[in-house]
Simulated assay, not measured.
Amino acid sequence: MSKEWLAHRIKAEEEGRRIGSVLQFCLGFSRRRLQVLTRTDGFRLNGKRAHLDRRVKEGDLLEVCVHQEEEGNLAPVAMDLKVLYEDADLLILDKPPGIEVHPPEQRARFRPTLAHGVAHYFAEKGIKARVRPLHRLDKDTTGICVFAKNAYAHQTLDRQLRDGTLQRGYLALLRGLPADPVGIIDEPIGRDPEHHMRRMVRDDGERAITRYRVVEVFEPPCRETEGRAGGTAELEPSLEPPLALAEVVLETGRTHQIRVHFSHRGTPLLGDRLYGGDSPRIGRQALHSAWVTLRQPRSGEAVKVTSDLPEDMACLIVGNEESHGGNNGTIAKAPETE
């Protein structure tokens, strides 16, 4: 069974430390992962097997197994996948609407998910690995979805997600204008006792932080009404609220966080039936995962991936711009990474 190794040259400041300490505190391996590495001969010092208690010297070569062939954990299902980025550790896809990222732990009937499509992609490419999605997107949310190809990459990216090194940016069309064009929503989220799927802002919920800025505002077109006594048609203000295109960055990742926070503020996502934004103009919540920035798990190099707006959201924006003779706003972009 083939293995892939990460090579680490011991630095002067690491001299005298035990191998286990270097693996855990310098390379970021969890205690649980250290146990797996010990059972599977998953590390070596200067080309030889060693014990976790062995002390290292400057210039020593510590090699760690970051991946070995493993059996898949999902049935492969052929589907068209749009790959935005791929390397030895990462697979980043552009998720369409109408499909779940991965199956819930319990499911009465089998239903293909994006993860089943990744399992098929791995099988076609000869990649012997489990499917490890880093995060979840709601079924009808589109855009960037990150998968790790091995346990080391998944653990590293999960740590980046928790410490803020990995950032995710979304684009949302709001039904109405937020009170402030730039702001932070810091409101705890928990389950709605009156609806099994819905979440709500509640004092005993988990802390949830959402940062946003309004990128473009679209006033609704005027309504055309019949003129008096057969006269020419007249225009009246629309009864519809304006739309706001907002760039949203999550500092936490609660279920339905963006949808709950904006609904709580009185500006639900356009098309979001569950949270009060139902609209005939779009058949889903207008939410798109537009960019992600992270560090490559092995090299530490900055990786930035972006995804274009899907057709249904783009058409809404173009339609609003055309109805007002154009708009000089710009679509939000991922920040530059250092």
Rank of each mutant, 00 (worst) to 15 (best):
S21P: 14
Q24V: 15
F25N: 15
G28M: 15
G28D: 01
L37W: 08
T40M: 15
E58N: 11
D60I: 10
H67N: 02
P76C: 03
P76G: 03
L84W: 00
R107G: 14
R111D: 08
A115D: 04
A115H: 14
H120C: 03
H120G: 01
Y121E: 01
Y121L: 04
A123Y: 03
E124T: 05
K125L: 04
K128R: 09
V131A: 04
L137R: 03
T142Y: 10
I144R: 10
V146F: 07
V146P: 01
F147C: 01
F147N: 00
A151G: 10
L157T: 14
D163H: 06
Y170P: 08
L171T: 05
R175Y: 14
D180A: 12
D192F: 13
H195G: 13
M200P: 00
R202S: 10
G205R: 06
R207H: 03
F218Q: 05
F218Y: 07
E224A: 04
T225M: 02
T232W: 09
A246S: 05
R254A: 11
D278L: 04
I282V: 09
Q285L: 06
L287Q: 01
T293K: 13
P297D: 11
D308G: 12
P310Y: 07
E311K: 02
M313F: 06
I317T: 02
